[in-house]
């Protein structure tokens, strides 16, 4: 890639918007996933009984079951959120930059 093309893209106002918003968005989602997962691991390590609490009096199903399922579903939903924003907003910004270059 030629250096002048790189400079043109870097100077494009939409380029700064693209990299800033994507960076924030991606790292926020990453931190959210890390907190959920390592929070779960730390509960298992320090307070495993918490997850063994029955859902209601007399029930066999414990809180740990829905918590585990929620983490699995959340992983899926978070990737879905990222895809919808990236394939929408971020790709639109990229398209603008590309069109302006031509």
């Amino acid at each position: 890639m030629h250096q002048d093309l790189v400079e043109t893209v870097k100077a494009h106002p939409r380029y700064q918007e693209l990299i800033c918003s994507r960076k924030c968005f991606a790292w926020n989602l990453t931190v959210l996933m890390l907190v959920m997962y390592y929070g779960f691991i730390l509960i298992i390590a320090f307070a495993p009984k918490l997850l063994g609490t029955p859902l209601s009096a007399g029930a066999v199903t414990t809180i740990g079951i829905p918590v585990g399922i929620v983490i699995i579903v959340a992983a899926f939903i978070l990737t879905g959120i990222y895809v919808s924003k990236a394939n929408g907003k971020f790709d639109a910004l990229t398209k603008t930059i590309r069109e302006d270059l031509q």
Binding site: A26, W27, L29, T30, M33, L34, M36, Y37, F40, I44, L51, T62, G64, I65, G68, I71, I72, A75, L78, T79, Y82, V83, A86
Partner: peptide, 24 residues
């Protein structure tokens, strides 16, 4: 029992990270 679910979750949570940081 429940321990199996812990493993499954560990194997799954790498995927969102791949998505957010490296896939594209």
């Amino acid at each position: 029992g429940y321990d199996g679910l812990i493993y499954s979750i560990g194997f799954l949570v790498g995927w969102p990270i791949i998505m957010f940081l490296i896939a594209e």
